[in-house]
Amino acid sequence: MSPFLNEISTVLVFGLAYAMLLFIISVGLSITMGLMGFANLAHGSFAMMGGYVTVTLVTQSGVPFAAALLISFVAIALLSIPFERFLYRHLYRRSELDQVLLTIGLVFASIAGVTFIWGPDPQLIQMPNYLKGSVDLGFNTFPKYRIFMIIAGAMIVAGLFYGLERTKIGAQIRAAVDNRTMAESVGINTDRLFTWTFALGSGMAALGGGLGIQILGGIKPVFAFEYLVIFLIVVAVGGMGNIRGTFFAALILGIIDFAGKFYFPEGGAFVIFAVTILVLLIRPQGLLGKN
């Protein structure tokens, strides 16, 4: 096996696993921004809390990893509902600056909150046996978890696209993103739609937070700030409210980011920002965003 192919496949698999994670977390943010026009900088906080719920369930209560992910998805989705109902809703019509400030306030408070409970150090997670070790695909060996991540991600993506394209609620969401007034005039209850969509997006973020613990070297309080920028970038590059665009953006940025850090350990982290600036200068509305 040539070392070149070896390297390429490593970059692709690791990059793809990271890209899936980015998509799972960012897609909720994208829909919130496209549907409600709300700049929710606290989205990363929901992901972070999902991560903590997962870690706690697995390490302290001995809940199986897969079940823990599911529980944290439901728990954070439910938790997010009062936030949307009682806090965010008041700011849909306020300026972007107000939305940004309020949600930054939430980020600060949530970071402090989890630090009180779990401390500032990263919480690590013990993987179940079936996700430990590596798998030999003939031409190269990869960590099992990355392969799992790609497969799980692909399933979630497929489920999401199916849900949006084929179900009634999916059609309603697409209609409301496209033209809210029109959607309301044909009898869609956008208020309720917002709440459910927001809960779904927050739950997805929580799921991503749990799935990401292993890849990102544990979950820690600063996660909510550190990765927020990346999620925002994915949304902006993909085009707000455009799920397909968010997926492509996550793929491109995830792989480029990993490749950058792989080939240029010094300074590779800034490649993704350079790419972002370039894309948004050519297409300010994002790859697939509407004008």
Partner: peptide, 13 residues
Amino acid sequence: LTLLVLTMAVTIM
């Protein structure tokens, strides 16, 4: 939002 993201991106870069 795009402007916001870009100002953050420049600083982090």
